[in-house]
Design a protein around this nucleic acid. Sequence first.
DNA 1: CAACAAATCAGTAACTATTACTATTTACTA
DNA 2: TAGTAAATAGTAATAGTTACTGATTTGTTG
Lengths: 130, 130
Amino acid sequence: MQSKRNFSAKREAIYETLVSTDIHPSAEWVYEQLKPKMPGLSLGTVYRNLAVFKEMGLARSVGVINGQERFDAKMTQHPHFICQKCFRIIDIPKGYNVLDKNAYTMIERECDVEIELHSITFYGLCKKCC
Amino acid sequence: MQSKRNFSAKREAIYETLVSTDIHPSAEWVYEQLKPKMPGLSLGTVYRNLAVFKEMGLARSVGVINGQERFDAKMTQHPHFICQKCFRIIDIPKGYNVLDKNAYTMIERECDVEIELHSITFYGLCKKCC
DNA sequence: CAACAAATCAGTAACTATTACTATTTACTA
DNA sequence: TAGTAAATAGTAATAGTTACTGATTTGTTG
C-alpha cells in the first residue's frame, strides 16, 4: 500500500508524527518519538525532511526556543502562546487573532513592502505555571 | 565622567551601539562595530552583556535569523517586518499594530493563561527585493 | 589617596543544534 | 531484471553560544 502523498516510509512517519501532535516539536523530539518504532532512523533524516516540509509548504517554524527550532504542521494562520517558564507552546484558535483586516494593506503602503505572511506570539505564564 | 546608568565602559559602549541602530543586530555585528574602537573587547563580553540587558528589560530578542539571534533595544511594543530575501528587519511604527484592544483579556480568559507581552512579525519582500 | 571587595572582562575551551558529505540502500522505470 | 534517481545512515564538520579561569577594572570605605 502506498501513501497518498508518495512519501517514503520514513518521510511519511516524520510527517505523521509532526502533524498529529500539538506540542510544536523540535527535530530531536520527532526523532525520539520515532526511533523506538524505526530503529534505522537517523537524526539527519529528520532534519532534512523537516526542511523539505517547509519547502513544500507543509510545515513552518514557530521559532527557536532554548536553541532548538520548533515546528508546526498546522498551516492555518493562528497565533501561539509560549509559556516563559515551561516553554510550552499553545495554539490560539484562529478566531482570537484580531489583527485588523486592513493591517496588510496599510503596512504595505506605508512601509513599502510586500507582506506574505505574519506570525503573532504571546508570551507569559500558562495555567500550570501561574 | 560617569555614565548615567553606572555601566562599565564596555557595557555602556555595547548598549549605545545597540540602542542607536535600527538594524536589530546580532551579537557579532555589535562586536564588529566596536572592536576597531575598542581593541580589547571580547565577543563573549558582548554576548554576556546582551543577556544582561535582556535580564534588565533594556533589550529583547527579535528572533533568530539564519542561526543568529537578533536584538532590539527599542522597548516600546512594535511589530517587525522581516524580508525573506535580504533578511533585513524593519520596524513598523506602533500605530500600525492593530491588535484588538480586547485580545489580551479574551485570550487570557479562553486559553487560561497570563499574557505578559506579545510579538508580531510580518514576512515578505522589502522594496529593494521586490 | 590607599586598600580591599565585588564586578567585569579576555581568552580559550567546551557545548550543542544544525548542516554537509559519502557510501549505501531503497524506490521507481522501462 | 537492469539501470537510474531519490532517500538515507552514519559520521564529520560547522557555527552560534555558553562556560570557565585567571587577570583586570570598578566601586567603596576609611
